[in-house]
């Protein structure tokens, strides 16, 4: 049984980690961009960012003053039990979000869309979002918080099969060029592309591809993996670097996630996870142990399951 108190304590720690510590995979990717960056202004921007990450860690202060909109991803091992059930877990995550907003401090970004009411704690109607996934075995739960910033860098479009790969590339370029100018998207970014699904699922897939997959990970379909690398190279060949200055540092990595869609369509979404690619994860075990990590491990062969039952599923009516 996992105690609600452990969940709340872990969630508070994750909120601070996400806000303060840039994940190692992103940092490695950004350093690789820096090595090949020829644009003087773009190179200067990346250098300043690298110093900024150090300053954040040394001072234990948020890396970016815009601390984004904190949200939660929870994955349950199939055997996990939480004291007080899912309702207690949600209450713990909401409390931890409010507490960390005060303690770190984070910017109280969450307001009512119309009345602009601000509780100064990043909690409100339907906020923070909490998404769930499940895993076939295990008594643990995984908590991941993502603090995605940016009013810019996301777009959705209904493409059609006839638009093909050329259409995908064009929409991808449109999003990068439009939001890359003046660095509105705070690139170099982890670009997530959602392909397929219904419209809402398409947005979710792209968002999760950018926020919940690490730099260097590849889609298990080799042809999609090749397209990821091709789109990454394409983005970096625009001629635009950090802040939209001349250069080559636009895309730290490109992650694509797909979902089956209506036979007539090919919906596509693009998301850019910025210079403050903030995420932090932890696994809470049944005995109360907590392991922190930066890879959410959200996408698995189970989560992407492609058939009626997934390959590893126990057969309910297996032969005796």
């Amino acid at each position: 049984m996992i105690s609600a108190a452990t969940i709340e304590r872990t969630a508070e720690a994750l909120m601070a980690k996400a806000a303060i510590e840039i994940p190692e995979d992103y940092l490695t990717g950004l350093r690789a961009c820096a090595e090949t960056e020829k644009g003087e202004l773009s190179a200067f921007v990346i250098q300043a960012m690298l110093e900024n990450y150090d300053a954040a860690k040394e001072d234990r202060r948020a890396m970016c003053g815009d601390t984004g909109v904190p949200r939660w991803y929870v994955k349950y091992g199939n055997e996990a039990r939480v004291e007080g059930g899912p309702v207690a877990l949600e209450a713990a995550l909401r409390r931890a979000t409010a507490t960390a907003t005060h303690d770190v401090p984070l910017r109280p970004n969450r307001v009512h869309p119309l009345w602009r009411t601000d509780h100064d704690n990043n909690v409100g109607i339907n906020a923070p979002e909490i998404d769930y996934a499940f895993h076939p075995d295990g008594e643990w739960i995984d908590l991941t918080t993502v603090h995605k910033g940016g009013l810019f860098g996301t777009d959705y479009r209904m493409l059609f099969p006839g638009d093909g790969i050329a259409g995908i590339k064009r929409f991808y370029l449109d999003a990068l060029v439009a939001f890359g100018k003046r660095g509105l998207a705070c690139q170099p970014a982890i670009v997530g592309v959602g392909l397929g699904g219904s419209k809402d699922a398409c947005m979710v897939l792209g968002k999760q591809a950018s926020c919940l997959r690490i730099v260097g990970s590849r889609n298990p379909d080799p042809k999609i993996a090749a397209l990821e690398l091709e789109l990454k190279a394409l983005g970096n060949s625009i001629g635009m670097g950090a802040m939209g200055f001349m250069g080559s540092s636009m895309v730290v990595d490109c992650n694509i996630e797909v979902g089956y869609c209506h036979t007539g369509g090919m919906p596509m979404s693009v998301h850019m996870f910025c210079l403050s690619s903030r995420r932090a994860s932890a696994r809470i075990h049944a005995d109360g142990r907590v392991d922190y990590r930066t890879d959410p491990e959200w996408f698995t062969s189970y989560s992407r399951r492609a058939t009626v039952e997934w390959d590893g599923a126990p057969r309910a009516r297996a032969a005796e």
Partner: peptide, 9 residues
């Protein structure tokens, strides 16, 4: 610059 240089600022 960045624009995420919030900690330096």
């Amino acid at each position: 610059v960045g624009y995420g240089t919030g900690a330096l600022l």
